[in-house]
């Protein structure tokens, strides 16, 4: 609409009608105004987070065997684990006494944590999980060391794993369980079969 010839660099971009560059610029801003904006109004509107968002780590204590793999693999050493051994009486009379690890303390310092997720990956017993919760800022940095009970609280915010795709291979836990069940049934059938055959 106005002079481009002397003022703006638009003339060099396209050799069209003088001022077409200026008009193009106006069109861009106008289009952007008509479009939906991208501002996230966070405190008012909660963000829509992806299911695998790395917000905070939850601990499912029952699965933990204090194997210390997570603490050892953690790149910045932010997992603290204390434990002691307990002697468990033999399961059956005449059996051997067993020892097992009992968790005393499990803490993650989220001031140090870099959210790499190695601990979650490395846990062989599925005791650590990612939760998408992220609003745990504190005014004191010491508060960011989440102890066992707090980590347990986070556990209840862990979303259910996403459903498998249709036609996908079934999870190996399920497959293993089925195999065991099948074997058991087979064994039962076999046990019944020969017994009947033997009887006569």
């Amino acid at each position: 609409m106005t002079p481009s010839a002397s003022a703006s660099a638009s003339a060099s971009a396209s050799p069209g009608f003088p001022g077409s560059g200026l008009a193009k610029g106006l069109a861009v801003t106008l289009r952007t105004m008509m479009r939906k904006n991208v501002t996230a109004q966070y405190p008012e509107v909660q963000p829509e987070l992806a299911p695998r968002t790395r917000g905070v780590i939850g601990l499912f204590e029952e699965n933990c065997t204090v194997c210390m793999l997570c603490a050892r693999e953690c790149p910045d050493w932010c997992i603290y684990i204390d434990s002691h051994k307990e002697t468990v009486p033999p399961a059956a009379p005449g059996g051997r006494e067993r020892q097992r690890n009992v968790l005393d303390r499990f803490a993650i310092d989220f001031a140090l944590c870099m959210y790499c997720g190695i601990c979650v990956e490395v846990c062989p017993f599925d005791a650590l999980f990612w939760s998408p919760e992220f609003e745990y800022a504190e005014t004191d940095i010491r508060e960011l060391t989440h102890e066992r009970d707090k980590l347990r609280e986070w556990m209840w915010t862990v979303p259910a794993p996403p459903a498998l795709d249709a036609g996908a291979e079934e999870p190996k836990e399920v497959a293993a369980a089925r195999r065991t069940a099948d074997k058991l049934r087979q064994a039962e059938g076999q046990a019944e079969g020969p017994a009947e055959g033997e009887a006569p």
């Binding site: 106008l30 952007t32 904006n37 501002t39």
Partner: peptide, 13 residues
């Protein structure tokens, strides 16, 4: 407001 929306923002809210 207009400037904000032309830049894909919301402006004062």
């Amino acid at each position: 407001k207009v400037m904000a929306h032309m830049q894909g923002r919301l402006g004062p809210m």
